[in-house]
Amino acid sequence: MQILLPCFYSFVACVAYCMCVNLRGWKMVWASLGGAIGWGAYLLFSFVNHDIFQYFMSSLAVSIYSEAMARLNKSPVTGFLLVSMLPMVPGGGIYHAMEYAVSGNTEQFMSVGLHTFGIAGALALGVLLVSSTVRLTGTIHREKRLELARLLRQRENSKKPGAKS
């Protein structure tokens, strides 16, 4: 229950956000489910007790999910990623940093601010890893297919003169 409830909240929030950005139909449901999955991954890794690592794992989960959903729905990955990363935006960190800045607590402001930056970096790294890997495998696949086609053509060409002679 403790895991399910926040995931449900993030799902509802993502559905509402989809309404704001005009994402409709099944894509809305899939994209919002990504938000719930991301937060579920965050909570699953809570035994590590290191929130930057948790954010990294959840962004990894969300990016893998979004890439898969984009392939399945034949729709740009941007939409899925944008919606399902929303619950991971470190709003609390920014707010508390601002609060410390207003009350003149510079030390706390710096430490909370840098921590928030670290979270953003972890999220970035997760997305980067997954989307680069996907692109790399796509390119390798395409190159191999081209190579194969070239080989086949060469073989056919070499066969033809042989048949003639």
Partner: peptide, 13 residues
Amino acid sequence: LGFAGVAFAFTLF
């Protein structure tokens, strides 16, 4: 409704 829902659900979240 979307805007209200985002604020509602994220506050609970």
